[in-house]
Nucleic acid binder design. Structure first.
Lengths: 96, 96
DNA sequence: CTCTTGCGTAAGTTATAGCTTACTCTCGTG
DNA sequence: CACGAGAGTAAGCTATAACTTACGCAAGAG
């Protein structure tokens, strides 16, 4: 969970997640969206997202297709929601 | 906004935010919660949170009282909500 | 004025992140 | 079997993060 939040803290990785949120994309297509950095850099970002389990990888011949892992994304979302909810409870308790 | 997310990616800083979410605390009290690191380390974490505008600082004599900045916290929350909402829209559009 | 308390800040260290270039691996194809 | 395309990986660089210890500074107490 902690690795997921750290992964999300990187703008480039958030952008990658947007790209593969709803559709599978091969690594080359993903890299093509980033003109400022090399394909290798993107491959490494994909590695970080994979380790955080935020994306799944599927092989198709020589290509590797990536897609956001909705389960893990949901878990991360829930973690953040919980964080805020707890905080708001503390606010409410103090208000009394 | 980006600095806020990066600030939140640090477990120690998330813990600090929880401490000052609903009440002002002097730096010493905050530091006292962390036995693994020095007071100086916590002071630096507070600096990061301050720069990300996630906490406000108020001076009272020689003490400095910190508290979570609800406005900025709300902005961050909204940013994350938007991120997920956009993603879910892409999912929905693909489903059609 | 001086001393103590509460805290930030400077300097230096070590670990880690993000990047590049170069290499390697694995398929599919002729 | 050779080779070209798609991608990860190794090595090395630079910047930044997270610490530590040491020092400096402001404010109230005596």
């Amino acid at each position: 969970m902690d690795s997921a939040l750290k992964a999300l803290a990187e703008p480039r990785r958030r952008e990658i997640l947007r790209l593969v949120w709803s559709k599978e994309l091969p690594a080359a297509d993903i890299a093509a969206h980033f003109t400022e950095v090399t394909r290798s850099a993107i491959s490494q970002h994909l590695g970080v997202l994979r380790e955080a389990q935020l994306v799944t990888e599927r092989r198709d011949g020589t290509r590797r297709l990536y897609q956001a892992d909705q389960n893990e994304m949901a878990r991360l979302r829930q973690f953040l929601d919980q964080y805020w909810t707890d905080g708001l409870h503390r606010l409410r308790d103090v208000a009394e």
